[in-house]
Design a protein around this nucleic acid. Structure first.
Length: 210
DNA sequence: ACATTAAGTGATT
DNA sequence: AATCACTTAATGT
């Protein structure tokens, strides 16, 4: 496992830190669709991604979801950091978008390492910055883009994290992520298909031009 | 062959 | 852009 760590995080962390991560972390193989963290749960571990992607969702009062952003390799969940300081509960839901390999580090080490390792400090600050940017982007998307533009962005993002232009989703799953109705998605997808941007099949969408 | 789930469509608000 | 109501198509048992 230490080799895998070095391979993915060696360029970020010094050897001593890698060793510590290796000692206290738990390596996990997560299948696509697995619920990693739900709203209201206390966060005990922070994930360091090796490969794959995780989607981060917000939920409204009715239980409907809204996709905020994806986390990819080299990323961590900043929420886990914020929460461990105040022992707060998660305000987001995290679901594995693809099969994902990651290492779970107990949160109590995070603060310790902040003082001990400069590289860890940088990593946390940088992650913070990246997450904040992505949140702002998510807000912009919801506030300023129309549904057809949001859909197109969604498809592109999805293709990117999956490293594949063929996406396996149903229209209603998209509708859930974008917090709209299936009918609307079906219509917009149909329009995109007529424009030649995508190709539709049952449970599958192929992106033609990006 | 039948039931279930996914997707397409017109009409209305 | 959302909702309803209905149709058609694909898929599982």
């Amino acid at each position: 496992m230490i080799e895998a760590l070095k391979q993915h995080y060696g360029y970020l962390f010094e050897d001593d830190l890698l060793k510590e991560i290796n000692q206290v972390g738990v390596f996990k193989d997560i299948p696509a669709g697995f619920l990693l963290m739900d709203i209201g749960e206390t966060i005990k571990y922070m994930p360091l991604l090796f490969s794959g992607a995780i989607k981060i969702l917000r939920e409204d009062a009715k239980g409907d979801e809204l996709l905020l952003y994806f986390i990819e390799q080299g990323d961590t969940c900043t929420m886990s950091f914020t929460c461990c300081l105040g022992n707060k509960k998660s305000e987001i839901r995290a679901i594995a978008e693809t099969d994902t390999k990651l290492i779970m580090v107990p949160v109590e080490h995070m603060q310790l390492w902040l003082g001990k390792y400069k590289s860890w400090q940088n990593f946390i600050l940088l992650s913070y910055h990246e997450r904040t940017s992505e949140l702002l982007e998510a807000i912009d998307t919801i506030a300023f883009l129309k549904m057809d533009e949001r859909l197109l962005k969604y498809l592109k993002d999805k293709a990117m994290v999956n490293h594949n232009d063929v996406i396996n989703v149903t229209h209603s799953e998209i509708a859930q992520d974008l917090h709209t109705s299936r009918v609307v998605i079906s219509r917009l997808l149909k329009k995109l298909e007529n424009e030649g941007a995508i190709k539709l099949q049952r449970n599958q969408i192929q992106l033609m031009k990006l």
